[in-house]
Amino acid sequence: MIVFFYLFALISLILALGVLVFKNPIHSALSLVGTFFCLAAIYVMLNAEFVAVIQVLVYAGAIMVLFLFVLMLLSTKDNDQYALKLNVSRGLAVAITGVLMIQVLTAFMDPTLRFGEPGAYPVERIQEIGSIALIGQLLFTEFVLPFEVISILLLVAVIGAVIIAKRRVP
């Protein structure tokens, strides 16, 4: 089990680096899709099946398709000007990111890290109720207000996207 975790972790890291280094944005996008799949697999191992499913459906499916769609729509020949070049400020960016990463890692690896009291849903309980049923219950009871609010956000986003992307008729 744990071996699979490391395997997927490694693949996802490689693919993520691919997003960073591929010259062609379509390759980047495809490698990002791969990363998402690996993450979905890790979610399953972490007993979050529902998240894994929507990760595949929404992220890898809908969102990435949208990205690819736009990329193809706007395909430009001048890939040169997007080449990954290093200069002073980019070097600085790398340095800062490195420091940032070390900081986060030290924080996460800290053996004294405490997580507080265990919650009400240990793995056994989730498996007993079923992950999806549990999330459904929670969404429509405890989190019903954010759930409704987020639906309005989606509506606004849809309308906004249409308005922004609409070709203006003079």
């Binding site: 990111t97 940032l100 924080a107």
Partner: peptide, 10 residues
Amino acid sequence: FSLGAMLILG
């Protein structure tokens, strides 16, 4: 922005 984040985190 990330410089700021780095400083705060530090």
